[in-house]
């Protein structure tokens, strides 16, 4: 009878996304077109992938601010592998994911083994990864940065062309598969359980014999791998690797997670929340563009909607918590009425 608080949050997140879709579909003619939906799902996929990875450190009570740097570095490395070494896209997607995982491992080591706080460690390593990406950009003979376009068919099949006419892109499916896969990892494996345990109470988890160091490192590896995968897909979409890649991804991804219902501080939420949050953030922008406003107003409205949505979410959560408390008290008094 009683709905779990997590389910309520999920419902709220779904409700927010649906509300936005309905509003934009009614008020604008082009929002609900097949083309727009496919582009929308493609655009949310990069942010969504990063957010799904980010969910792990966040559920574990931490944060990963290095994903922007990882996207930059891995994106540029991927284009190099295709352009300089002629590797096929299928090989590069694995290498990119592995490279992201390696960066994540570095994060994990400096957090869990050296003992830096997540904030400081990942912010600092993020600067390093970003610098690595900037240092690796293509240069001409005179040492000036240049852009190189990817031409490999297998590479571009991931991002540039839809699978069918006006249809969805491969990126979208990769994203959904990863999100669902990680959801299963979170809910059905011991590792997932321990992640929640660390996020809820680090000390208690440790006392009950959980190897928190290992769990944290694996969380960062997953986050890095997702960012690496996203980086590959972003470059497949852009067909090149601009040096400004990954700018601000970390904060957007965190905001997406929070909007979707993953709490800063840990212990709550899952990758489906991250997926919904990323969808929400992308729909806001995509929908506002349809009104043909100058981008000045787009930025303002985007900010306002994010604020309103999260305010509504938090107030709703508070309300739900109060009500549950009340019910609990009632059921304590009259145990027979509880069903």
């Amino acid at each position: 009878m009683r709905i779990k608080s997590q389910s309520i949050r999920r419902l709220v997140a779904v409700g927010l996304v649906l509300a936005l879709v309905v509003i934009f579909a009614i008020t604008t003619p082009t929002f609900f077109g097949a083309r727009n939906i496919s582009i929308l799902l493609k655009d949310s996929a990069y942010l969504g992938l990063v957010a799904c990875g980010m969910a792990f450190p966040m559920i574990g009570g931490g944060i990963d601010l290095s994903v922007g740097g990882i996207v930059c570095a891995v994106g540029i490395i991927s284009v190099h592998l295709s352009y300089d070494f002629g590797l096929s896209g299928y090989a590069i997607i694995f290498i990119a994911t592995l490279a992201g995982a390696a960066f994540g491992l570095l994060n994990g080591i400096i957090v869990a083994k050296v003992g830096l706080t997540e904030f400081v460690a990942t912010l600092a390593s993020g600067f390093l990864f970003l610098g690595l990406g900037r240092a690796l950009v293509f240069k001409d003979a005179g040492g000036r940065a240049v852009t190189r376009a990817v031409s490999s068919e297998s590479y571009l099949s991931f991002g540039k062309n839809p699978l069918w006419e006006n249809g969805w892109y491969l990126i979208t499916f990769v994203w959904i598969v990863v999100a669902v896969g990680l959801y299963i990892v979170l809910k059905k494996t011991k590792f997932g359980l321990y992640t929640y345990a660390i996020g809820s109470n680090d000390k208690a988890a440790k006392m009950s014999g959980v190897d928190t160091t290992k769990i944290k490192i694996i969380g960062f590896i997953i986050s890095g791998a997702c960012a690496g995968l996203a980086a590959f897909l972003v470059t497949a979409n852009l067909t090149s690797s601009p040096a400004a890649l990954g700018d601000g991804y970390e904060f957007k991804a965190i905001a997406a997670c929070v909007v979707g219902g993953i709490m800063l501080g840990g212990g709550k939420g899952d990758t489906i929340n991250a997926l919904l949050g990323a969808l929400f953030m992308t729909i806001i922008l995509n929908g506002i563009y349809k009104f043909g406003l100058d981008s000045t107003f787009v930025y303002i409205i985007q900010g306002l909607i994010i604020l309103l949505a999260t305010a509504f979410d938090s107030q709703f959560a508070k309300f739900a918590a109060k009500r549950r408390l009340k019910e609990q008290r009632l059921s304590d008094i009259t145990p027979a009425s509880a069903s």
């Binding site: 083309r35 582009i39 601009p242 400004a244 890649l245 700018d247 922008l285 995509n286 349809k290």
Partner: peptide, 16 residues
């Protein structure tokens, strides 16, 4: 100054 944003705008222009 964000190339990704420019790509989004271009796609959006085609959609609309």
């Amino acid at each position: 100054y964000n190339p990704e944003q420019q790509v989004t705008f271009l796609n959006e222009a085609l959609t609309q």
